Simulated assay, not measured.
Amino acid sequence: MQVQIVLFDGFDPLDVIAPYEVLEAGRMVTGGALEIELVSAEGAREVPSGLGALSLRATSALDPSRTDLVVVPGALGRMPDENEPTEDSIPVLLGRTLDTTLPALLKECLDRPGVTVATVCGGSMVLAMAGLIEGRPATTHRMGLDLLEATGTIAIDARVVDDGDLVTGATVTSGLDLGLYLLERELGPRVALAVEKLIAHERRGTVWRNTGPKPIEAA
């Protein structure tokens, strides 16, 4: 299974490293069932994160034709200020991805049968701002749920939301839970449990899916 984790200028390092380590552990405990690489829309390059001088190296370009799972992180920067928007605010950093080829590549991924696109935190906003998930359920950081809904996405207040070929995680630490859930979904619960024990982390919350009876709203 080929996994590509996307880097873009200003990405949140933990959004990348948390699922990367979980999925890499999945590769270890299965003897190589996964191959994980860091990619960017532009190809191999050093990609600056939103955390000071920390950068990570993308080893190749995001390639929808040879991937099975794509993970899109959010950005790390200042919280948005409507009165004084800054160049290093999270919405601005996420919005800059729209000026790259990343949205077109992600659309190709979503259009290809058998490819799953997963996001951590503000990664779902990259898809939403590009108009790629209108009308679909997704989650993001709780402070961005209203903005997510404003794009026409169905905002779900859950830690992980599974909508088939789109799986989204809420906050920055949900990258661990997202990774474990993806291992369970794609490779089975025994693999996920082995990794859970290896990293000493138990998944939190119930994964939201659009199944089952709708609960009665409290008055």
Rank of each mutant, 00 (worst) to 15 (best):
P64C: 07
V47S: 02
V22Q: 10
D68A: 15
P13M: 08
D12E: 14
M28F: 13
A53W: 10
V70N: 11
V29E: 13
P73L: 06
Q4T: 05
A44L: 00
S49R: 07
E42K: 00
V70G: 02
D63I: 09
D68N: 15
R45E: 01
V22S: 12
G50K: 03
T30S: 13
L54N: 08
V3F: 09
Y20N: 04
P13W: 08
V71T: 07
D63G: 11
L76Y: 08
G52V: 07
M28S: 12
S40Q: 00
R66Q: 15
V47C: 01
D68F: 08
S55C: 07
V29N: 03
D9W: 02
V3Y: 10
Q4P: 01
V47H: 02
R57G: 00
R66F: 10
A41Y: 12
V16H: 03
V3P: 15
P64A: 05
G74S: 08
T59N: 07
E42W: 09
V16Y: 00
P13I: 07
M28G: 13
D15H: 06
I36M: 09
A33R: 14
P73V: 02
I5F: 04
P48Q: 09
R45G: 00
S60N: 03
R66I: 09
T67F: 00
M28T: 14
V47M: 06
G31W: 12
L56K: 01
L38W: 01
T67L: 11
I5C: 11
V6W: 01
D63V: 10
L7G: 06
D63L: 04
G43W: 04
A41D: 03
T67H: 08
A33N: 11
R57T: 01
G52Y: 11
E46C: 04
V70H: 13
V47G: 00
S60E: 03
